[in-house]
Computed example of a mutant assay.
Amino acid sequence: MTEILFYHLERRPLEQVLPMLLEKSLERGWRCVVQCGSAERRDALDSHLWTYSEASFLPHGTEAQPLPERQPVLIATSEANPNGAQVRFLVDAVPLADASPYARVVHLFDGRDDEQVAKARERWREAKAVAGNELTYWQQDENGRWVRKA
């Protein structure tokens, strides 16, 4: 069974939310892959994860760099899983053909972008149609905290 989570970003941008979720995943001993919609977004997230906090270090690399299989967090544009990730993060409303190899799939979408919201709804319907998936929907409240809505 795959746990599929939808994070509706409203108060904080992806660049603030993603590092926190990646850190929590690594604390649980999970390897992660972040799938982006473009090489430009992949490279921007790669740069951001090196500098987002002076107080922490998030080990990661991209599929364009040598030895992607060694990365605890891999940032990619393809559906490949060379680092054997248990958690797949999807940004830029990218689709995922098969969630079954993962313990958890996390859709992160910008609530201020109508296209991303529409695609997230489509992804929700697709995931719900697959037997065995456990879906949850999280939305930020006025203080930026996550509240489970479904």
Rank of each mutant, 00 (worst) to 15 (best):
R121F: 04
I4Q: 08
Y7C: 13
Y137R: 02
V117N: 06
R148Y: 11
E142P: 01
Q65P: 12
E115Q: 15
V87T: 15
I4S: 10
L22W: 03
S38W: 02
L26G: 03
V33M: 10
Y52K: 04
Q116A: 08
D46R: 06
E3P: 02
R104G: 10
A44G: 02
P19N: 06
T62F: 06
L74W: 14
Y52D: 14
V17G: 09
P19D: 04
R88M: 09
Q16K: 14
D141L: 00
V117S: 00
Y137S: 02
Q139C: 12
K119H: 11
V105R: 03
R12Q: 15
L67T: 10
A85S: 10
Q35T: 14
S38G: 01
F89S: 00
E23Q: 12
A127T: 07
V130A: 06
E115L: 11
N81W: 07
T62A: 07
A80F: 00
H60Y: 07
E23H: 06
A150W: 11
Y7L: 08
V130Q: 15
K128H: 04
R125E: 08
N83C: 14
A93K: 03
W124F: 14
F6L: 04
P13R: 01
A150H: 13
E115I: 13
L9V: 05
P82A: 04
V87G: 02
L67C: 15
I4R: 11
V34F: 13
A55H: 09
R148Q: 12
Y7A: 04
P82E: 04
Q71N: 15
S47C: 13
E126K: 11
E63W: 03
T136Q: 07
A150T: 10
L135H: 02
H107D: 15
A118P: 00
R41F: 02
L9Y: 08
L90S: 10
L67G: 03
E3C: 05
M20H: 15
V34E: 05
Y102L: 02
F89M: 01
E10C: 11
R148N: 10
A80S: 15
E126C: 01
P59I: 08
V33G: 14
Y7W: 13
S100W: 05
D113G: 01
A129Y: 08
Q16V: 12
L90K: 05
A80Q: 09
N83E: 11
E63L: 06
R41K: 14
T51W: 08
P101K: 01
S47P: 06
M1N: 05
N83M: 13
E79A: 15
A64Y: 12
S25K: 01
W124S: 05
